[in-house]
């Protein structure tokens, strides 16, 4: 299955949830947010949200700004 994470294509083996994707990418789960196909997915739903081919995922955090 191929999905796009922050604009990069990623091949995932088998079906996986958003929570599994975060683990696979080795991202810190604190104070990040995720959009799946332009809709925010609440943190509590990461485990139950299954990914599908061609899904577009945005994972954001915070940086310095004005």
């Amino acid at each position: 299955m191929k999905v796009y994470v922050n604009g990069e294509s990623k091949d995932l083996s088998g079906t996986s949830s958003l929570a599994e994707l975060i683990t696979q990418l080795d991202l810190p789960a604190a104070r990040i947010a995720i959009e799946l196909n332009r809709e925010v997915v609440r943190r509590n739903d990461w485990g139950s949200t299954m990914l599908q081919d061609d899904d577009r995922i945005e994972i954001v955090h915070f940086v310095g700004g004005g």
Partner: peptide, 18 residues
């Protein structure tokens, strides 16, 4: 204080700015 929202880099581990 203000902060900006940006994509998490996937190619390197990033510490939390916050």
């Amino acid at each position: 204080v203000t902060v900006a929202v940006r994509r998490v880099p996937l190619d390197r581990s990033s510490e939390s700015f916050l």
